[in-house]
Design a protein around this nucleic acid. Structure first.
Length: 558
RNA sequence: GCGCCUAUAGCUCAGCGGACAGAGCAUCGGUCUUCGGAACCGAGGGUCGUGGGUUCGAAUCCCUCUAGGCGCGCCA
């Protein structure tokens, strides 16, 4: 297990023990102890860890928090890594690490035995993260990009935390929208061959459909004209769908997003799973017939209203297939945890989906649904439409081409999924000079350059003595590096990868500051040079690990 | 009408029960004969949307109101 997590646990244990001892010796009344925890104070003067346990005990014991803090603090037996334990008003106990323990961590970070930043939290529990899952009826836009980046980063982080992660894209390849897509495509195809055909009223009018039709004409000629219309529609639809899916796959790849599984909605029917699940719900008494349709009685599970699963004509609703899909995830494929990332427009489905999962006999807590708020695209303050149905859209691909995948990822990751955002193309490009993305990557490239210099001077630093690292800028850098495992931990608990982006920036800042104050390679002090080279190599490792978790590149030069 | 998200420095956003509310950009002022100036240091700038409540302690939890966004189909 990661050193810092171990040390933190030791602190908590020591605190609990000291508090217990204080109660045994009568210094503290025998009240039930609250959960003992330590946190990282935001002010470095307050040490490396702090606890507010005395403040929490004040009410129950009727004692002054500061007195409680004093009683507990003097009973703590500190480990070898702790330099001081101090009591601070209004009732905190602060812990500060020893300088030499801190500097030793450089060696530990560089240790090839484990990948720094990985923690042992998942114990190989199986987690599925499903995201993007956009209907393959049109190209992706920026809003989809947000979900894609969120999901892929979460997957990286959870993998680092020891979970067995599987990423999945759910392809909606059946249903009425696919039908509309197929008919639209066939109409465009006919038009492209000079046949007078009308677009369906609910069709897809984007110009990409015209391009797609032309593409098919170029490849297949007029073969579809020779088929009976229903068959032609169906076959050209399938072809268009697979082309569209390929395009989506490629666009995502450009953003550094890939999936382990591309799951077909249609397969739920083909393999009979859909029928099986409906029978199951029927047995459980969750289905009811009314108004000539079949309903899932969500109200029985505390929902506002019931939802239709089978229409009057016997066809399944989107909701119904989603039930089958989640049955497949939890029961057939046996995932311990399922994470779905949905856009804000799907937020109304969250509670009923959880209700369904409960009806299937699965603890709803095992299903986590993350809602990412809307992204509006602007160009110089002017709103750009991103609707797929009508007119033209700015695709995700165009945005990535324009601002770059790394900048795109960082931009999305620096904001919490809960807040909606404007993506201004002009601004994104204009700001690229003073962009935090380059600030962080520059720190990495700078270190790479230092290491190249050392290599050029044949200065090997494997035997560097880290105990020479004792100045404030050096230790500040080490302290910041030690935070990564806890960042990973936090993200697993909160499902909020944006902490990573802020951490990356902090880490780069501390490095740049160190760099300004401390000369790394100097000819008059070889031992210190070697020690600092080690420090800087460790910083490079942590920086690059952080960038990679975000799905970004860590450039050697730029 | 109901549900969810949001409101924090001029702008974009962190912080989500603890110690004087932070960062980037912008503004103003400094730092370079040595490892990459896409850098560093400093200053100004905030009644944390409003009004209540809970708590030893609230930007953080609960309620009211205001403003913005998204939902509330036998579309997906």
């Amino acid at each position: 297990m990661t050193e810092i997590i171990k040390v933190r646990q030791k602190l908590i244990d020591a605190l609990r023990q000291a508090a217990g001892q204080a109660q045994e010796t009568g210094k503290l009344p025998q009240v039930p102890l609250p959960e003992v925890s330590v946190e990282r104070p935001q002010n470095p003067e307050h040490g490396d860890y702090a606890t507010s346990l005395p403040l929490k005990l004040a009410r129950a014991t009727g004692l002054r928090p500061l007195d409680i803090a004093g009683s507990i603090a003097e009973l703590i037996t500190p480990g070898p890594e702790v330099a001081s334990i101090t009591v601070a008003p209004p009732g905190f106990i602060n812990f500060t690490f020893k300088d030499d323990w801190l500097s030793q961590q450089v060696d530990s970070i560089l240790s090839p035995d484990e990948t720094y930043g990985n923690i042992d939290l998942g114990h190989h529990r199986r987690v599925q993260i499903e995201f993007v899952s956009v209907n393959p009826t049109g190209p992706l836009h920026v809003g989809h990009g947000r979900g894609a980046i969120l999901g892929s980063t979460l997957a990286n982080v959870m993998t680092a935390a020891g979970f067995d992660v599987e990423t999945e894209y759910y392809i909606n390849d059946s249903g009425s929208q696919i039908d509309a897509f197929s008919r639209s495509l066939f109409a465009r195809y006919q038009q492209s061959l000079g046949v007078n055909a009308e677009m369906p009223a609910e069709g897809y009018f984007g110009s990409y459909m015209v391009a797609l039709a032309r593409d098919i004409v170029a490849e297949q000629g007029d073969t579809f004209l020779k088929l009976p219309a229903p068959e032609a529609v169906s076959r050209i639809g399938q072809l268009g769908l697979s082309k569209m899916t390929d395009q989506i796959r490629q666009d995502l790849k450009l953003l550094g997003v890939s999936f382990d599984v591309w799951f077909s909605e249609k397969s739920l029917y083909e393999q009979g799973q859909f029928k099986k699940v409906m029978a199951l719900l029927q047995q459980g008494g969750y289905l009811a017939e009314k108004e000539s349709a079949t309903w899932f009685v969500s109200t029985a599970l505390g929902e506002d209203k019931d939802n239709v699963v089978l229409r009057g004509d016997g066809s399944a609703t989107y909701f119904a297939t989603d039930i089958a899909y989640h049955y497949n995830k939890f029961i057939e494929r046996k995932f311990d945890r399922v994470i779905n990332i949905w856009g804000a427009d799907h937020q109304g489905h969250v509670s009923r989906m959880k209700a369904v999962v409960g009806a299937l006999g699965v603890d709803p807590e095992q299903l986590k649904i993350i809602i990412s708020q809307m992204v509006t695209l602007r160009r110089g303050g002017e709103l750009v439409r991103i609707s797929k149905r009508s007119g033209d859209i700015i695709t995700l691909r165009e945005v990535v081409d324009e601002v770059g995948a790394d900048a795109c990822r960082f931009f999305f990751l620096s904001r919490s999924a809960d807040s909606q955002m404007d993506f201004d193309l002009e601004l994104a490009k204009k700001e690229s000079q003073d962009n935090p993305v380059y600030y962080v990557q520059y720190a990495h490239a700078r270190i790479a350059s230092i290491l190249r210099l050392a290599q050029g001077k044949k200065l090997s630093f494997g035997d560097g003595d880290v105990s020479l690292l004792a100045s404030e800028p050096e230790l500040a850098l080490v302290r910041k590096m030690l935070l990564l495992p806890e960042i990973v931990e936090t993200i697993v608990h909160t499902m909020e990868p944006h902490h990573l982006a802020h951490y990356a920036q902090d880490l780069a800042t501390v490095f740049h500051s160190f760099y300004k104050q401390c000369r790394v390679v100097s000819r008059d002090n070889e031992p210190l040079s070697k020690a600092r080279l080690k420090l800087v190599a460790a910083a490079k490792l942590v920086l690059s690990r952080t960038l990679r978790l975000m799905g970004m590149s860590a450039p050697e030069t730029m």
